[in-house]
Design a protein around this nucleic acid. Structure first.
Lengths: 123, 123
DNA sequence: TGAATAATACAACAACTATTTAAATAATAT
DNA sequence: ATATTATTTAAATAGTTGTTGTATTATTCA
């Protein structure tokens, strides 16, 4: 992932409203939602939501598909996973022991596992 | 994780310089780096770096520890992992099949696994 | 065709962000 | 003590972002 793409993704998630929109779309998965549904669900004026949806799609975090007179939005989950890999890459210089130590030191440690798309990142 | 914390973390990673700083600290792990090392490594004027380090620590993404006349900064890796959980929570309404389908549809799919600190999130 | 609906584009303004330079603070070394 | 080094703070400025109305485009339905 290129840095510029990563920063524009983070920028687009730095607004509470855009974060709400994105998480909503992550939950919906492949089904996605049309703009009006999102506006109703989050109680936002259409013009304002449109502004934020544009920011999200320019960051490639959401995709748009025209559906009659509706616009259906979907979260780009593979891109989100690439971003996670980018952020956690080479964590603790690839020394799992150091990482685990850090995590055990912090409160609420409980390990679980998650599949991540490319490049094994030991965190 | 509270939304306001998540947005301030994303906001703090939305600057290319802050992202460089944070990823550098993630790589260093528990050892961390003092401000001057970071400034030299990234070739940034101290005053400007200080501004961005302040933003990162106000978002709790990095911790500071005084060390003589140096300030040692470290990435808060457990917080980063909490953020990842927050972002991926309830993905595809908890239906792994849909998620996998989305990921296979995208180019470059190759599954690996990563430990994540709390709450199993199926992505 | 004309009316209604869904969504985006534009303009204007207030609020915020990043960078630079210069000055201040605080710890160490001489 | 004085000088030096590491880092932060402050002030000034240029650029960017978010919100609200209003206007426009595009699609469906009668």
């Amino acid at each position: 992932m290129e840095k510029q793409i990563a920063t524009s993704i983070f920028e687009s998630l730095s607004s509470g409203l855009r974060l709400d929109v994105f998480r909503l779309l992550v939950k919906k998965g492949p089904e996605g939602m049309v703009a009006g549904e999102i506006a109703a669900m989050l109680d936002v004026p259409p013009a304002n939501l449109s502004f934020h949806l544009k920011a999200l799609s320019q960051a490639h975090l959401v995709t748009v598909e025209q559906e009659g007179r509706f616009q259906r939005y979907r979260a780009d989950i593979p891109l989100m996973l690439d971003l996670i890999v980018y952020l956690t890459e080479e964590c603790c210089s690839g020394s799992p022991a150091e990482c685990i130590e850090m995590r055990i030191a912090s409160k609420g440690f409980k390990a679980t596992t998650v599949p991540i798309p490319t490049k094994t990142t030991t965190i």
